[in-house]
């Protein structure tokens, strides 16, 4: 089980959070997705290692930008 943490920099409301989570869910093997509106912190757990590029790409599809944390 691996975990990747990142920060989404342009969240404005709950819709953004919901949208981000929807997008992240589409990454294969992703589970336990958390995105916090106020801090922008996001976390994805996965059974296989997920590259940050995948996170970035998923979020890009909903116009969200992310920076990697760990």
């Amino acid at each position: 089980m691996s975990e990747i943490k990142f920060r989404i920099t342009n969240l404005t409301c709950e819709a953004c959070v919901k949208l981000s989570i929807m997008a992240l869910k589409k990454i294969p093997h992703a589970s336990n997705i958390e995105v916090d509106l106020t801090s922008g912190l996001g976390k994805v757990q996965s059974s296989q290692v997920i590259g940050f590029c995948e996170i970035e790409k998923a979020l890009e599809s909903v116009d969200k930008k992310a920076i990697v944390l760990n």
Partner: peptide
């Protein structure tokens, strides 16, 4: 209740 573009997208989605 829409605040931003995300809301637009969310509904569209």
């Amino acid at each position: 209740g829409m605040h931003c573009q995300s809301c637009e997208k969310l509904i569209g989605e």
